[in-house]
């Protein structure tokens, strides 16, 4: 299938910047908010959003961690998944947790992430921020609170955030 560019480099930069602004708009103080990027592909996206937030509100402390959900997948035994690092150097107890991933598709990764998060404590609230929302393809009742771009795609198509060159493509 032909490769289609969903977001060019400048659009991607603008979108990441907008997501950062939306998050700050919603939470004036980040004191009770923590951000968690989901391994492996949500890391780069979340890092860029966090960089943006830090630039916009340099005086605020931004808590950021990364979460690997491999051991919580529902298809552990069907195919091999390589585990990555988890680093959550703060407590999530009673915090507002914003999970950040690149593409929201079936919803199964987020389901696993919610389970994984439980093992670190009981957050006050969990929100989801994604760069791309593949609409109408969910297999579980999960939706995002902050969305970079919503797209319509079929199951045969793949959506990927590429970093060299920096763009979002569908093929």
């Amino acid at each position: 299938m032909l490769k289609q560019v969903l977001l060019t480099t400048s659009q991607l930069n603008a979108t990441l910047n907008r997501l950062a602004h939306q998050l700050i708009e919603n939470y004036d103080s980040l004191q009770d908010v923590v951000f968690i990027g989901i391994q492996p592909r949500g890391i780069k996206v979340s890092e860029l959003i966090i960089d943006n937030i830090r630039q916009i509100v340099p005086s605020q402390k931004v808590e950021y961690g990364i979460l690997d959900i491999t051991f919580y997948r529902d298809d552990v035994r069907e195919e091999f998944h390589k585990a990555s690092n988890t680093e959550i150097p703060f407590s999530v107890e009673d915090k507002i947790v914003v999970l950040i991933d690149d593409v929201l598709y079936t919803g199964r990764t987020i389901r696993a992430a919610l389970d994984a998060l439980q093992d670190f404590g009981r957050p006050k609230k969990v929100e989801l921020c994604v760069l791309i929302d593949r609409r109408f393809s969910r297999q579980l009742p999960i939706q995002a609170d902050y969305i970079g771009k919503s797209i319509d795609s079929s199951t045969e198509q793949k959506v990927k955030v590429e970093w060299v060159p920096k763009e979002v493509v569908m093929y």
């Binding site: 491999t70 919580y72 997948r73 035994r77 690092n85 988890t86 093992d119 670190f120 404590g121």
Partner: peptide, 23 residues
């Protein structure tokens, strides 16, 4: 390498993952 990831799991408040629930 996988053991390194599990060592981190063992430092969590809940030191348990559901991976082999069906085994």
């Amino acid at each position: 390498t996988t053991a390194t990831q599990f060592k981190e799991v063992l430092q969590r408040p809940i030191k348990k993952v559901p991976s082999l629930r069906d085994v």
